[in-house]
Design a protein around this nucleic acid. Sequence first.
DNA 1: ATATTATTGTGTTAGTTATACACATTGAAA
DNA 2: TTTCAATGTGTATAACTAACACAATAATAT
Lengths: 245, 245
Amino acid sequence: MESKELKNFIFQGDKVFLPHISVDCVIFGFHDNQLKVLLLKWKEGPWCLPGGFVKHDESVDDSAIRVLYERTGLKNIFLQQFHTFGHPMREKGKKTSDPKSWISKRFISVGYYALVEFSKVKPRPDILSTDCKWWDVHKVPSLIYDHKQIMNKALEAIRFDLNDHPVGYNLLPGKFTMPELQRLYETILDEKLDRRNFQKKILVLDFLVKLKERKIGGAHKAPFLYTFDKKKYAQALKQGVKSSW
Amino acid sequence: MESKELKNFIFQGDKVFLPHISVDCVIFGFHDNQLKVLLLKWKEGPWCLPGGFVKHDESVDDSAIRVLYERTGLKNIFLQQFHTFGHPMREKGKKTSDPKSWISKRFISVGYYALVEFSKVKPRPDILSTDCKWWDVHKVPSLIYDHKQIMNKALEAIRFDLNDHPVGYNLLPGKFTMPELQRLYETILDEKLDRRNFQKKILVLDFLVKLKERKIGGAHKAPFLYTFDKKKYAQALKQGVKSSW
DNA sequence: ATATTATTGTGTTAGTTATACACATTGAAA
DNA sequence: TTTCAATGTGTATAACTAACACAATAATAT
């Protein structure tokens, strides 16, 4: 069906893309109090991270932005480069129809993570895949190559970044409750936090705005709604919020 | 003189090295209470960071290790990958003798920093350079391409890492005094610290061993000597020393 | 209607850590 | 022997963290 486009990609891709360099995106979402990660199903093969290649005149960051857009339809999302994976055997077991094709060669991959709002994503498979869907971070299937390691390194990175940087702007809806934000932190950290201390800690970081409204409709006492102060959030993201020395 | 080797490198390098991918090492040393960085002088051109290319069957990490070894003679040094620089114009102004050579093409560079003991280094220029020497971090000359940005990003990374990770094992001699360690921290952070609070803070991290000996010969009261507890140091390096959530 | 239950809002207290200092000690130089 | 500059050690206060208590409230069960 798409064999012409696919063949063109395999045999002519090196005219468009740099050889030996790829990007992989670990795209996190948050749903049902679970951290989700977006995966693609290789044709007749295992699952993998959404990835792509770098056009000859494109920055690596822009390639990652493009991959994120093509799989989710989302733009202007905070994408964080966290590590570059460059072991020659990282793609062990790689099989391609044509071993002479540029795509069958060794690739060094630059890893990015993104945090996106689950409900806004329309997962779209790419040319090499048949399926694209969310997986619970604790239940991801076995992944191709070193993609499980890449995902784990992304998780490590985001947990680490959480110590100094705010999180949530792209993950939560515009208005959210303190318990919802706490669930997000707990899910990322995979750890239960004290409700009262969490609120104090997050409020002194000074990027939240408490609204007069409450979230109605749920069971139990109606919690207040909050939003991010966009300016202060961006500043905290850029500068970090604390240092030790 | 070495023109045969050089020509071979320029015209045959793509047989040995991957195209479009390089590594750059920001090698820090500590001397005269100043943070130093090792730079190379391009032939009839500006200064630059020590860098290199990735062999077809070599890991990117190993390329960085090789570069560090070739410029300093040092092995088994902690090398930290901190960022990958992938903007298509990062090498603006690039000039090469042959524009068709693999080396004149666009390169994406993986950045590493290392912290080494100044006195153990015998700086060695590479095939493309005439000089290799230490520069005071505050007095580096103008550098080629985006190398100044790479250096600054390395400084940023090391300052950040300092919040959770120990520093000094490769930078200081085997035995050192508390004031010497403090100077190192102050130099990296570019900030003066309180002597008494520094000592308390660094000691609770629990990777230092206080010796019975004192450093004699200097003016003023003889300070005690310390060493790193190698095991605890390595553990702190790996796991980090504190987290916020 | 009223009681029940789970969840939220808002504290308080004790323990720990960080910050800002003070003072005695010591080795070399004046 | 005095002076000076640096080191060794300690202390008081403020700031922060961790653990915990109790009242308020919205849906549900009775």
